[in-house]
Amino acid sequence: MFESGLVLTVVGAAFAAVFGGLGSCIGVGTAGTKAAGVLAERPEVFGKLLLITALPGSQGVYGLLVAILILMKANLLGGPAADVSFEAGALLLFAGVIMGLSGLFSGWFQGKVAAGAVGAIGRDESVSGKGLVLAVIIETYAIFGLLAAFFIWLSVEVGAPVFGA
């Protein structure tokens, strides 16, 4: 079954997109719920809340980015698929896993910090910049995950498409 690395490649892409997206869902969900509550009392701070609430959305984007890169490497975005060895497939899978897990956890916890910041902004608008900074600190680890995945991706070599295979 694993003679070709193509299956592993696709699993890797899926892993990055799904878990990156999951992290964003949880994060934006946590922050968004809180923001909606604050809005009921102070609709005028909507703009500031929107920024903070959208912050954990980036993990999903990074996950999608890695997924696209992986699919691109295997030439799965149109045209015949490239000849991906088992080893190359496994490496691409790991790139996806790194991105997926770092996205999942950083998005999750960023959402919690963002929700806290949302509550603080509800009480005092002037802390919005500081709240934003606190939430951004966590994103570093999603970005490091993205970079690690990117450099693994960069190192993987695949063969030319196998025609008629």
């Binding site: 984007v61 990074y62 999608l64 980015l65 696209i68 890169l69 570093t140 970005i143 490091f144 993205l146 970079l147 990117f150």
Partner: peptide, 14 residues
């Protein structure tokens, strides 16, 4: 500071 590169990359690829 490596985030600068990651974000620059992300805009283009997405």
């Amino acid at each position: 500071y490596s985030r600068i590169m990651a974000l620059g990359l992300a805009t283009g690829v997405i």
